[in-house]
Design a protein around this nucleic acid. Structure first.
Lengths: 332, 332
DNA sequence: ATGAAAGCGCTAACAT
DNA sequence: ATGTTAGCGCTTTCAT
């Protein structure tokens, strides 16, 4: 058990006593309201706080007010660079508004439980970047939990959802490949027919009048991309270009290509998606579609905390094409 | 203001009423103690909890018990892969013990303030992976905050500190380079004379009877490494091997080398330090010294939560040499 | 085995 | 402008 150092903590009552005021005045001073405090008195209080090293007890405050000045974030894997950036951006946005962030890794199935636990901690809102079934969303919302769905495909009525336009992003990526004259364009990623990026790839090819190239199923990891890349280099039907669902997977693909001495972009051009920092530092650097993660995080936080205009539930953020060496930009 | 959905939250009293017991019994049931509860009664309570969708209020619990079942983590930059892994590992370890993690990015100067704010949130302990002045450590500790210092060089008496053995790690890295016949070995990283890795580099060279090569100052980022790499390729006195302080910086160096067509490891061999996932997926893959981050995080959490044997304050964790293509392992 | 009740530290409505 | 005080929901001692 966490042994406190038998340092009896200083409470607001101590401060009040030291400053010769009531506890209410201490509150008024520290919270700038709701009642005014004479300047001199406020000074005495602030001084007492300083001298005593008083630290307000957030638990008591949260209990009283029913809100904790914390928000929660549930991601599949916070060490994945994309989600790491999301977490950091969310923390920044939250911190700027005086809120702390609790991050939970919910790769396992019990996302709902995690959300519930966060709710029990009286967080003022929860951003969920994990897949959540519609039923669960409904239940959670019904039980009074303020949710914001991140990059999810369930525009549930009444639930805030923010997402980048992966479909059109993927399309733009494939168009870029088409513009560079490619007519044999493969896909790496989740090959489930309903996958947004896969559909974007298909759609772009259809519009471009080009037959779909091979699909290489890959898990969302460097290893997944690597394995897919190994399949690819071993196959007879090698495409001349590849749309890869995430930068991480593309990094894995690159490794497989390097190992076989396949040159990028000369032999195979690559466009991926996410725009994480590592896409800039792979070799060659990846042409990618950047998701405006920071902006999305900021908006999600603003929404949760009520600082957002209404009406913009279900916002779709456009991706930005960043042209680098893996397709479209000459190597130095 | 966070508008609750006017859904009056279910409290323990509601559960008690529904189950036809006292609030105390609900507590006993939910907490497995401190008093026994008849099985049938407990079942009734559990059922009531389920039916009512009761969610214990962590703030109230924290207020009463003086501990929140949360721990804090202060890092310079949670999107840096090394710290992202630390954060994830810490979250895992904390979660396994029923604790949540609050992560704060404290790159700016007010680490002390962040720590204080975390303490106000009644966290049960704080892991600090940012530089903290000795005075501040003393003050913080004196004010009853349970700290664990991560990779810091101030083995303050009485403060728990965990760190990997960067000095000997760096030495081992340089030895590896020496073993491969290199006699002109440069350094990339923090070139402040007191820097641990710099000292390790120097020490190994001295022991190896080899004159120190050039030092390239670099910030802790890919960009920092890139800039250093650009200096390096432009210089006349180009070393044949490089010890780079972190994987991230090494990735930046690699980019600069690629851009100039310098081959690794043929023209320049590289050993870096950290062992982050991206070290495995750079091209060529980096020979690196892996810090046992997950183990360290686990131990730090265990210590903070009192689950650790005493006596092992100030533990130094050995690094593990991972030989890859950037030095010592043939390219495929 | 169960219950009653006293707070934990803070906020804010209601005095003064 | 300042003070008094009633809870917020929970844990736990002390009854029964």
């Amino acid at each position: 058990m966490p042994s406190d150092l038998s340092k009896k903590a200083i409470t607001r009552a101590d401060v009040a006593r030291y400053a010769g005021v009531s506890t209410a005045v201490v509150s008024y001073t520290l919270n700038n309201g709701p009642k005014p405090v004479a300047f001199a008195t406020a000074e005495r209080v602030r001084n007492a706080v300083r001298v005593l090293g008083y630290r307000p007890n957030a638990a008591a405050r949260a209990l009283k007010r029913g809100s904790s000045d914390m928000i929660g974030l549930v991601v599949p894997d916070s060490s994945n660079p994309f989600f790491a950036e999301l977490a950091q951006a969310t923390e920044d946005a939250a911190e700027a508004l005086g809120y702390a962030l609790v991050v939970i890794n919910g790769n396992d199935s019990d996302v709902v439980q995690h959300v519930n636990r966060l709710a029990g901690r009286q967080v003022d809102g929860i951003i969920v970047a994990c897949d959540l079934r519609l039923v669960d969303i409904a239940n959670l919302t019904a039980s009074g939990i303020r949710l914001s769905l991140f990059n999810q495909l369930h525009p549930t009525e009444g639930t805030h959802a923010i997402g980048s336009d992966l479909f059109n992003g993927a399309k733009a990526g494939v168009f870029h490949l088409l513009q560079h004259g490619h007519t044999h364009i493969g896909f790496v990623g989740n090959t489930t027919p309903s996958d947004t990026r896969l559909r974007g790839w298909e759609d772009a090819l259809r519009e471009g009048g080009v037959a779909p190239g091979p699909r290489y199923p890959a898990g969302y990891s460097r290893e997944g991309g690597y394995a897919a890349g190994q399949k690819l280099v071993a196959s007879s039907d090698r495409p001349t270009a590849l749309f890869v669902s995430t930068d991480m997977q593309a990094v894995g693909v690159l490794r497989a290509l390097h190992e076989r001495g396949v040159e990028v972009p000369r032999e195979i051009a690559i466009v991926s998606l996410d725009g994480t920092p590592e896409s800039e530092y792979s070799w060659p650097a990846l042409t990618t579609l950047r998701q405006p993660v920071r902006q999305m995080a900021k908006d999600a936080v603003a929404h949760l905390l009520g600082h957002a205009e209404a009406a913009d539930d279900h916002r779709l953020y456009p991706l930005e094409l960043v042209v680098r060496q893996s397709c479209g930009c000459a190597l130095p």
